[in-house]
């Protein structure tokens, strides 16, 4: 992983995403990012070769509302190479994700970067808020 340049890693991952037929999600994110005024809290960065996109919480409807069930409203959407990372906010304002579930982070950006380090190049699994509990 360390020998791959950021551009190469990003290109490879984008290709893999297209092959999986989820290029739409990436395109959606790119369109959102091109708006004239970027909302506070929006992040679009490349960290260790992975694209991190964070869009602030929206109220009802839209892409975010379509993904989440009750109880998750008011959370930002965090994506790594276009795949959504399940995140939660703790009562004290700290953050955890499904990748780093048992340690807290001060903000969504450090949470997303920790997920990138933990993933070691692996791709996030499709987002499944309820985990298919039967």
């Amino acid at each position: 992983m360390n020998k791959i340049t950021r551009r190469q890693a990003l290109g490879t991952t984008a290709g893999a995403l297209s092959a999986l037929g989820i290029a739409g999600a990436t395109a959606h994110a790119a369109a959102a990012d091109s708006r004239a005024s970027i909302p506070t809290g929006t992040v679009d960065e490349v960290y260790q070769g992975r694209r991190i996109q964070i869009t602030p919480a929206t109220t009802g409807g839209g892409h975010h509302g379509g993904h989440h069930g009750g109880g998750h409203d008011g959370l930002p959407t965090v994506r790594i190479d276009g795949r959504e990372l399940h995140v939660m906010r703790n009562a004290d304002g700290t953050w955890i994700s499904v990748v780093n579930h048992y340690e807290t982070f001060a903000d969504p950006t450090s949470l997303a970067r920790a997920a990138v380090r933990e993933l070691q190049g692996a791709v996030l699994a499709p987002f499944a808020p309820m985990g298919g509990t039967a």
Partner: peptide, 14 residues
């Protein structure tokens, strides 16, 4: 699967 379902749905405010 069951465990992960609870991990993701257990929230401080819900």
């Amino acid at each position: 699967t069951t465990h992960n379902g609870f991990i993701m749905s257990d929230t401080d405010s819900g």
